[in-house]
Design a protein around this nucleic acid. Structure first.
Lengths: 125, 125
DNA sequence: TTGACAATTGAACAGCTATTCAACTATACT
DNA sequence: AGTATAGTTGAATAGCTGTTCAATTGTCAA
């Protein structure tokens, strides 16, 4: 019964609990998308870009100065953020201005920030 | 004035905007902690572990069966999750039972899930 | 048209990380 | 004590990813 191939070599599996949990699991595609969503925010350069765009619409040049990184490095990461629909681009003359694509990312950002700063206070003791 | 070393080679920097943004930026340590927080959730195996522990306290064996992965792989990732205080371990006899360490991770998980599923609906058209 | 510059792109490289494998620890049972 | 099993650990490997560098595109101005 169950999987044809069992990688695990255990005897003590709590069959009833395992079966119960299995029925409640989230669809794997959704889980993978969630992981991808977190992944895009898990890089220090990208989170810094989100942070500066949180405050204003900026061109690649401005972001480069604020982060003290090359335009190339910034441009590569902006591409990733754009592909995940976290930022949008607006071209005006030679420059391209970037901004956060919607308010959802702001909420996620705020929430995580609060979480981190709470944790920082907790560990003070 | 400004940084001693300028990596960026731009001329058109919007000095007023850049200065204004710079004053509002979040402390770098907090940003790095936020990135680390996202990083721990950005792996498919870890997010699956969170998902199963969301439903019940489980031993390593149970998790291995549910994810169809070796105990070693699961154990390595549980270690990462433990170090980030996302899960806690309770030893009972030979087995070690894992559970989510608090409700905060549940809220973050729920929120992201909603976000992903909304996005999935939007892109249906 | 020519020159200058903002921005993008692709290839290469270096650093990181998840899984595998084997060895090991700890606990329970006989 | 001896055996079996749950779980952990460290080293090695393979795959992924962020930055750099050089080349290129697109736009503006003379």
């Amino acid at each position: 019964m169950g999987k044809t191939e069992m990688i695990c070599d255990c005897d003590i599996i709590h069959k009833d609990i395992v079966d119960s949990v299995r029925n409640k699991l989230i669809d794997e595609d959704v889980l993978l998308s969630m992981a991808d969503f977190y992944k895009i925010l898990s890089d220090s350069t990208r989170i810094k870009i989100i942070n500066v765009l949180y405050e204003a619409e900026l061109c690649v040049c401005d972001i480069s100065v604020l982060l003290n990184m090359t335009k190339s490095a910034i441009s590569h990461q902006l591409r990733n953020l754009r592909e995940m629909n976290l930022v949008r681009a607006r071209k005006q003359g030679k420059e391209v201005y970037y901004s956060l694509s919607d308010d959802h990312i702001r909420k996620v950002f705020d929430m995580t920030r609060e979480h981190i700063e709470e944790r920082a206070n907790e560990t003070e003791c």
